[in-house]
Design a protein around this nucleic acid. Structure first.
Lengths: 235, 235
DNA sequence: ATTCATTTATGACTACACTCAGTTTTAATT
DNA sequence: AATTAAAACTGAGTGTAGTCATAAATGAAT
């Protein structure tokens, strides 16, 4: 805090071996403290119950300083959980059983995401609310990159399973990734809004995914797992 | 406002021909004024730029009274636009050309919804934000009923087109409705968040819908409109 | 007409996210 | 060491959503 300046590499013609000066490091440490404080409080008391005052106090900074590091309280929410969500997604894709049926693989991935949100439903609601419609442009790229990871992850899963599952050649796997994620996401929202239980959500999700995957096959002799043994047909 | 009481049917043993007393009517009129004031101001100045004070003033009520009629400002947003959205959806389903290809019919429906949101993007963002994750349980049933209308509407479109489009028998059209709407919704969000232009959104949406519909057919000899004539395959 | 219980209305008040004018810290320059 | 410009910090202040104690209105009962 108050020791005199000791290393000043910039002046003595040396190459900037450490491009991070004291200033940068202080800023980074402060940011870390802010994010840690926010994470703890959000997890402990919930998003709306946590005040920016409390976060600033715990991070040992002035109330105004907080807003030099995050544009808004909502911004802070994404800054805090973005990495965790990316990590959760990547881990989910990494852990997937590549030899399981495609539907199961997708359910593993989405199931991991659901499990993540299930740990703290109020927080999940706040997060999804903010991610879905950003309150400002600041975190736009963060969300984009998360989406890219998910879309391409799903694309990979499909590509890997292509031969075994008789998936048609020439389909745009990113497009399919977007579609399947859309199916998941709206179901997730329904669950988070309390329109259905987690069980019902997951069961319905599996049915929708199975149906969608069937449609990607070269031919569809019969649905893989018919929910009902087909209606009586007039011959 | 100040005329003496003239008809008091309740006392004189008559059946309650008008179950709405003065009280009820006053409440209804006040609610109407509130909704009209909110609608005008939201449309004129935008959601976040409108204060609850202004709404109360224009509706000629006290600031506290407003919150007897709406639990929150967000609540008010849904109360104001719920009917409009339901109307938009129902009209969209009614106007659909039942003899057009299924993809076109769906695009007509979703296109009408997009056109509705396109009239005022900031407002659309606020609306979708609130609908997606409700800030309270008050409007839960409103959203549910809107969803039911949409899901069953899509289901109807599919059922109607079933024979002509070679759709498999025995599929759960509500399930498909949910899936297709999910595909639309996440695309809509991407557009509203500025991740893509309206054109790109609609084009991509059509591709996803086409792919999904193909999957519902009895057999898939060839994709209806291949985006690219299949990659070169090593023989 | 008077009383009384219940419903509805009100605006001063509170809590909180966020701003900004003024201050302190940093580090470059001499 | 002194000077200075730029960057970072700060907390008192501001605007607004929402609350609540109190008041007014209503209608039932007598």
């Amino acid at each position: 805090m108050k020791q005199a300046a000791q290393k000043r590499t910039a002046k003595s013609g040396a190459e900037k071996v450490a491009p991070v000066g004291r200033r940068e490091r202080n800023k980074q440490e402060k940011l870390d403290r802010i994010l840690a404080a926010a994470r703890d409080l959000f997890a402990d008391k919930g998003f709306s119950e946590t005040t920016t005052q409390e976060i600033a106090e715990r991070a040992d900074i002035g109330t105004g300083t907080l807003f030099l590091y995050a544009k808004s309280k909502e911004d802070l929410l994404i800054m805090v959980f973005k990495d965790e969500m990316i990590e959760t997604s990547q881990t989910a894709f990494r852990k997937v059983s590549r030899d399981a049926p495609l539907v199961d693989q997708l359910m593993q991935v989405f199931g991991a995401m659901v499990a993540y949100h299930n740990r703290d439903l109020p927080l999940a609601r706040a997060l999804i609310r903010e991610i879905t419609i950003l309150s400002g442009p600041e975190r736009k790229e963060d969300v984009r990159s998360l989406m890219r990871i998910i879309y391409s992850g799903i694309g990979d899963v499909i590509t890997t399973s292509r031969a075994r599952e008789n998936i048609r050649a020439g389909i745009d796997v990113i497009l399919v990734g977007e579609a399947l994620f859309g199916i998941y996401y709206v179901g997730l929202i329904g669950w988070l809004n309390g329109h259905m239980t987690k069980q019902a959500f997951l069961k319905r999700l599996r049915a929708k995914l199975a149906q969608s995957i069937d449609g990607l096959r070269i031919s569809t002799p019969e649905p893989a797992s018919p929910a009902r043994p087909a209606r009586n047909r007039k011959p």
